[in-house]
Design a protein around this nucleic acid. Structure first.
Lengths: 257, 257
DNA sequence: CCGCCCCTATAACCTGCGTTATCTCTTGTT
DNA sequence: AACAAGAGATAACGCAGGTTATAGGGGCGG
C-alpha cells in the first residue's frame, strides 16, 4: 500500500463521523487500493454485474442510476468528492444499480470482503460504517419526499440545494461549489421530470437570478434563494460527529408499554 | 428477560439473514425488551423527538411518514410483521420521520445504545445489521424508481406487489397476505398521488379482477396480474441467505486501473 | 343510539407537465 | 474540415392526474 493517511480518501471520510485511533486508521489503509482514474462517461459498473467492491470518490462526480424496460432512466444518486460509492450493494451478489462518471474522477477501490475484517476487528469502525449507511437512507427518504410531493420548481431547487450542502462538507474551494456538472437530462432523470420541463424551469430560475447554465453545467448564483423556493431544511444532513463519543450513554431501558 | 428464542422477533428476523450461534442469540435476547401492544392510530414517535430505540414488529402493521409544511404528507415506508422499525434513525439524535400504527401492533423495543454492544461483541451480528440497512436502501431505491418514472397504474400495482412479496417472507397464514390494512389515503401519500386518483385506479383494477377493496383494506386477488401491470421484478428483494457463509471468499483485489 | 369523522365513489373541471418537433450551438471524432 | 452526437431553447398540443364538490356508508366515542 502506498497510501498514507494524508491522501487516503476513506480515512478522511470516516474521520468526519468520529475520532478513530491509530490501529483503526492502519486497518483502513491496509484494506484500501490506491486511486484509479476514470474518464467522463466511463461506467464503473452495470446492473447485474458481480458486486465485489465499493469505492471512495476522491475527485470528480459520478452518478448511480437504473435503466427501465421502457427506455426511461431513473437517477438514484449523485456522488461528490468524499462520498462512498456502492456501499449499499453490500447485501447483494449482483449490482442493483449502474454507475457512470459525470466528471473526470479518481476513485479508490475497497474490496467488499474486507468489510467483514473490519466488523471483526473494530467496534468503532463498525459503528461508523453502519452510521454511514443510515445517513444515506436519510438522504433517500428526503428524495422520496421530493419526488412524491413537490412541484417541478421545488424539486429542482431542493435537489440543487441539497447538493450544494453536501459539497460544502468537503474542503473543495468555493468555486467548485458553484458549478455542478449536471446536464438537464441528468437532472430530469433524477427528479422524475422531462428534460424539456427542466429547461423551462431553468428559464424561470435564470430570470429570477437563481442560477446560470452553461454547457451541461449549472452555476448556483443564489443558494439562499433556491432554498427558499424549495422550503429546504438541512436537518437530514445534520452532522453526526459526537454521536459515538461517550462509549455507553445511560441506557434508559423503556420497559413501560 | 422473559424472552426465549421461540418468541423473540429479532432473533427470527436476524436468522433469515444467516446462521447465528448460541452466543449471538443470547446477546440479542439479553438486549431486547418484551413486546408491547400498540393500538391503531397510535404514534410510536414523531419527527423531532429524541431517538433512543428502535423496534421489531412482531404483529400488526405500522408506517413511517413525514408531514410537510403545506399540509401534505409523504408515506416513506410500510412495515409488516418481522420488519425492523427505525433502525435507520441510528445516525440521528432526533427522529427524522414519524411512525403510526396501521393495524393493532405488537412491538419489541431495542435500545439504540445496545447496538454498540453488538458491534463490539459479534462480527456476525455486525455484518447482519449492516446488511439489513443495505437491503432497506435497495427497497428505497426501487421506491424512487416507482415515484419518478411510473404511471399511477404502475405505481399502485408495483407497490402492492412489493408488499405482497415482503409478506410472503414471514410465516403468516396465506389469508393475511391478501388483505392489507391500507386506506386509499395512505396509498396516495405513499405513491405521490391524490386519494381521488387512487380511487379511480382501483376502479380499473377491480374491473380487471386484480383487487377488491373493503373498509380501508385492499384484497389482492391476482398477484401475478398486478406484477404484470407493474413490470415487477423482485431482484431487489433477493434472499441474502448465504452471503455470509464462507468466512472470507477469495478477495480478487482489483489493482488494475 | 346518536352524531361525528373517516373512508370511498364519482363527476366536472382544470393545469402542470409530458410529448413531439424544430433549430441552434457545442464538442469530440476521423 | 466535415461530421455525428449530445446539449439546450422554445413552441404547439395533449393528457394524466390534481382539485373541488357532493353524497353515501361504516365505525366508534359518548
Amino acid at each position: 500500500m502506498t497510501n498514507n493517511s494524508d491522501e487516503s480518501c476513506i480515512v478522511r471520510h470516516i474521520k468526519s463521523y468520529g475520532e478513530i485511533d491509530q490501529k483503526d486508521e492502519g486497518l483502513l489503509l491496509s484494506l484500501e487500493d490506491g486511486p484509479c482514474e476514470w474518464s467522463k462517461n466511463a461506467i464503473l459498473w452495470n446492473q447485474g454485474e458481480e458486486s465485489d467492491c465499493f469505492y471512495t470518490l476522491k475527485k470528480g462526480w459520478v452518478c448511480a442510476f437504473r435503466d427501465l424496460e421502457d427506455g426511461s432512466r431513473q437517477v438514484l444518486d449523485i456522488y461528490v468528492p468524499g462520498d462512498i460509492v456502492g456501499l449499499r450493494e453490500f447485501a447483494f451478489q449482483k449490482r442493483i444499480t449502474s454507475v457512470v462518471v459525470l466528471r473526470e474522477a479518481e476513485l479508490c477501490a475497497f474490496p467488499k470482503s474486507h468489510l467483514a475484517e473490519i466488523f471483526s476487528r473494530s467496534r468503532t469502525l463498525s459503528s461508523i460504517f453502519f452510521m454511514i449507511t443510515a445517513r444515506d437512507q436519510a438522504v433517500l427518504l428526503e428524495r422520496l419526499v421530493n419526488l412524491g410531493r413537490r412541484s417541478a420548481r421545488e424539486k429542482l431547487a431542493h435537489f440543487l440545494a441539497e447538493i450544494s450542502h453536501r459539497l460544502q462538507r468537503t474542503n473543495a474551494q468555493v468555486e467548485s461549489h458553484l458549478s455542478l456538472p449536471l446536464s438537464q437530462g441528468v437532472l430530469a432523470d433524477a427528479l422524475g421530470l422531462s428534460a424539456v420541463h427542466v429547461s423551462r424551469t431553468f428559464r424561470e430560475f435564470r430570470l429570477e437570478g437563481l442560477v446560470s447554465t452553461d454547457n451541461a453545467h449549472v452555476k448556483l448564483l443564489d443558494i439562499k434563494g433556491l432554498e427558499a423556493v424549495a422550503g429546504f431544511d438541512d436537518f437530514y444532513l445534520e452532522s453526526t460527529a459526537g454521536l459515538l463519543t461517550g462509549p455507553d450513554r445511560q441506557t434508559d431501558r423503556q420497559t413501560a408499554c
